[in-house]
Design a protein around this nucleic acid. Sequence first.
DNA 1: TGACAGTTAGTAAATATTAACTAACTTTGC
DNA 2: GCAAAGTTAGTTAATATTTACTAACTGTCA
Lengths: 194, 194
Amino acid sequence: MFTERQQEILEHAIDLIAEKGIQGLTMKNLSKRLGISEPAIYRHYENKIDILISLLEYFTTTTSDIFQQQINSELSAIDRIKMIFQRHFEAFENSPALVAVIFSEEIFRNELVLSDKVKQIMERNAASITAIIEAGKQRGEISENLSTQQLTTIFMGSLRLLVKRWQMSNFMFNLRDEGEKLFVTLNQLINLKK
Amino acid sequence: MFTERQQEILEHAIDLIAEKGIQGLTMKNLSKRLGISEPAIYRHYENKIDILISLLEYFTTTTSDIFQQQINSELSAIDRIKMIFQRHFEAFENSPALVAVIFSEEIFRNELVLSDKVKQIMERNAASITAIIEAGKQRGEISENLSTQQLTTIFMGSLRLLVKRWQMSNFMFNLRDEGEKLFVTLNQLINLKK
DNA sequence: TGACAGTTAGTAAATATTAACTAACTTTGC
DNA sequence: GCAAAGTTAGTTAATATTTACTAACTGTCA
């Protein structure tokens, strides 16, 4: 899918975005990081947008596993969502720069091809959570009175905000621990309905 | 606080950011929108960063009322949070471009003065919600078992995600109606504990 | 008359990209 | 087996365009 060099370029691009935002991602900065000249980058990518498209694909493949692994699991709905949470946290702790991409709507806003891809990723993720909640309802784990769609928003929204806070704190707290706490409360809220 | 012309400039700047992201906010684009020349803008603002600082102040004054009005209210905690939600939705429906600013962490990342201000705004908002939840706990409206901090994340996170979705859909659904639905579910979750 | 708000015509620096070339490999055909 | 041809990954220099910003001038109006 990606050559070794392309992957290197992507990783440095992610780092740059994470550190300085999208405005920090210039060919000059990127080449400096890579230790090669600007034109050398064009041996591996046609243009800058190509790099960004690639970057979204890279992110998609990285995270899509997390969702697909869960779908066949025998766990309860809530535990399955919990596992999705945890795996994301792990992925982010391993490479905090990835967080910049999960909040990349702003980054990719100016190009239609890119913003569409971001939309797709978000919709796919929401659909996964929705499916799990529906299954949970059928098994009687989650009250039928609660709107699946709204629960999806609540789960994803609070997850996203936690990660955003982690990013804004310069990754100063332990994401997994805080995620655990958040999940305890979410769990309490859902279970009380039984 | 702002002259008439300054306010005009800010509004067009917000529109530009809303449409094309931060990269769309150039002095050229801005002057084109305003129907004046680029140098004319410098009659009203010293430089571009000055405009962005002003923009955050503009946003702060616009939304800080929403929080302060509530604090003295006699309503229940949940209703007070609901009102804060609703007033935000109203503000956003009146000027959807404002939404771009609420998610402006990315936009203002490159300048320390700016990103600090964004952090401040977020913290102030979180503190308001936290205070309301704490009060609700003391009045017995919200279970003491539930973590105030996590509840704040859940409220703010789901609110933010809803607004984000609204933005990504190009404002194609009714934000207030969907907000109402979200709140019904949040209400269900909290109240069941009684 | 003089401050205010605009203009035109520029600036230097930064931007993504292209042109032209090179050194070091690998493949191919006799 | 080895020279010719091609590829890969880089270089420096130059490109057109865009960026934020400035200097100097002009009209307007209280």
